[in-house]
Each structure stands twice: as C-alpha cells, then as structure tokens.
Computed example of a mutant assay.
Amino acid sequence: MSPAHSAPLPATPAAGAFRIAAIQTVSGPDVTQNVEVVAGLVAGAADAGARLVALPEYFPLITADEQAKVRIREQEGNGLLQTFLADLAQRHGVWLVAGTIPLVAEADDKVRNSTLVFDDQGRRVARYDKIHLFGFQRGEERYDESATIEAGGEVCVFDSPVGRVGLSVCYDLRFPELFRAMREVDLIILPAAFTYTTGRAHWEVLLRARAIENQCYVMAPAQGGRHPSGRVTWGHTMIIDPWGEVLACQDEGPGVVLADLDPARIASVRESLPALRHRCLG
C-alpha cells in the first residue's frame, strides 16, 4: 500500500472546517470481499474524524466479465448493496457518497452507473446517474461503457453538513459544462476508475482545472492498482482546494485520503479572484 501524500492534519479540524475522506480501492470480482475492504476503510475514515466519506467508482465489482454488473444490479431502494451502504453510514455517523453501484436501467441488458448518497442516519438523500460514458481504443486497449451502461441525464447537487456538493463520475471530468451547470458549490465529488493510460496523461491536470475554474474543493476517490482481471487503474485519489493545490493524494493501493474543507478558504479565493461573478456566458 502506498502512503497518502499530505500535510499532517490536526486531531480535529480548525473551527468552522470539516474533515472529508476519499477511499481508494483495488476492487476485484468478489463482491463480498470488496465490501469488506470498504467497510474497514470507512471505519478508519470515521475514526480519523471525517464527516463525509466518498467511495470510488465500481467499488463493489471490477471484472473482465462486463455482464457481471448486470447480474448484480439492484432496484433503487432495495438490495444488499444499498442496505450495506445505509447501515455503514448510520453505524459510523458519516455522510456516505457511495461511489457507484449498478442500478436497474430502462434497457433490460444494461445498468445505470449510479452514485447514491446516504446521510448519517442511513437515509438516501441523493442519486446521480453517470452522464458521460467512456469510450477509448488504442492498440489492444479498448473500453466501451455504452455496451452495458445506460447514460443518465440530470445534474445532481445536494446540501450536506460540509456545504453544497455536486456529483460527477469518472469520464464526466472531461466535460466542464457539467460542472458549470452545478452553479456555485463548495465541493465536487468525482468517484472514478481512470485507466492507467488516460490517468497518467490527464487525471491531475483535469481535476485541478475543475477546482480552479469552479473555485471549490474537489475530492476524487479512485480505483488504484492492478486488478485480478488484469486491468490497471491509475489511482492517485486526491483532494484539491479551490486554488488548485493538491492537499492529499494516494498513488496506488487501498487507503484513506483525508483533508479539511474550510469554507473560509473558499470565501477568500472567491473574494480575491471573483471569476464566478465575472462570467459572461452561460
């Protein structure tokens, strides 16, 4: 496991600030094993004082069998994964942004790649279905999410104890118009499973750009490492502040990335450089 790179955090956040945590995993084909890893990491994040915890994309399952996600899909509001997530949030008293899980789609042979949000009482308070579906081909490396995933179509923003939060997933990162449509938010969360190829080239620069142009914190929990299927994900789970500074990062392997979200930092950046007020289009 690679250690997280971050400045030391105090035992508790400064007055007015909120501790947030991003979970990194290297999920495989065994759903039970994957959720057990997540349960332990969320417990560690809660023990470290996090009030909001976010999981990576595809945390329950990554396998070479693209139909596997269809077989474990759940109806919204009913299913073992959703029960696990609600119980986990309630048990640790955290708001849980639950990466993505496969939910039933309109097409019988596809799923929605859905982020569910549970409050600290275990109640589902928000849902976002991934809008932009990844497609990539270079030599033998090929991905086509549209083969098994049905795209969503609605922006999702919700209020939480750490402020106003906008949701996105992985490939959404390349489409800045989605984040502009969120209007002013305090935190953008982007669960991901970026490929090693695209992550090495573009991951950090795009995340920092989204933080800078929206003048908010960005938290990106990721898959990071070599999976049993042979797939390699980029990892580098990170939390970035509104000035584009990387506060904490873990390169690869399972782990917890922590930082403190400070509303005063957001206000200071927006006051000194009022770019959001200077917008002329859109």
Rank of each mutant, 00 (worst) to 15 (best):
V70R: 01
A98P: 15
G135L: 11
Q24V: 08
A126N: 09
E140S: 00
A209K: 06
L133I: 01
A89E: 04
V37I: 07
R265W: 00
Q82P: 13
L41R: 00
R180F: 14
R19N: 14
V155F: 05
R180K: 13
H132A: 09
H132C: 07
V37Q: 05
S6K: 03
A222R: 09
L273F: 15
A264D: 08
P176K: 04
L116A: 03
V165P: 05
S160F: 07
G135H: 15
H5L: 14
A147L: 04
R127Y: 00
A193P: 10
D144F: 02
A267M: 04
S2I: 00
G40E: 05
A267C: 04
R231K: 13
L258F: 08
G122A: 09
T197H: 14
R279I: 10
D47G: 11
Q67F: 09
G49L: 13
I72M: 07
A64R: 05
I131N: 02
F84A: 05
R208P: 13
V125E: 10
N78M: 06
A211G: 15
R127E: 10
F134L: 00
Q250P: 11
F194T: 10
A275G: 11
E57T: 11
G79K: 06
L190Y: 01
H236S: 12
E252N: 02
V165T: 07
G135W: 14
G199I: 10
Q137C: 04
A193W: 07
R123Q: 13
A45M: 10
V111K: 01
S229K: 08
D120K: 11
D260K: 04
S168M: 14
H92E: 09
F194G: 06
F179S: 08
Q67I: 06
F179N: 07
A4Q: 03
K110N: 07
A248W: 00
D262S: 02
C280L: 15
T12L: 12
G122P: 13
T233Y: 11
E106N: 14
D47C: 10
E57C: 15
G153Q: 11
G40S: 03
L61H: 01
G44D: 15
G28F: 02
G122I: 06
G79P: 15
V117T: 10
R226I: 15
R112W: 08
N34D: 12
L85N: 11
H236Y: 08
D65C: 07
G163W: 08
L247I: 03
G135D: 15
A105F: 00
R231S: 13
L276S: 10
G99E: 14
D109P: 01
V165C: 07
D65V: 07
E177F: 04
L61G: 01
S114F: 11
K69F: 03
Y143C: 03
G225P: 13
R138C: 10
V165N: 05
A39T: 11
G230S: 00
A193T: 09
A4L: 01
A14D: 11
A22M: 04
H227W: 05
R183C: 06
W95R: 00
I188N: 02
H132G: 03
A68Q: 02
G199R: 05
I240P: 02
A220C: 01
R51K: 12
A98H: 06
P29H: 03
A64C: 04
G163H: 08
G99W: 10
M219A: 14
T198D: 09
A50F: 00
I240F: 06
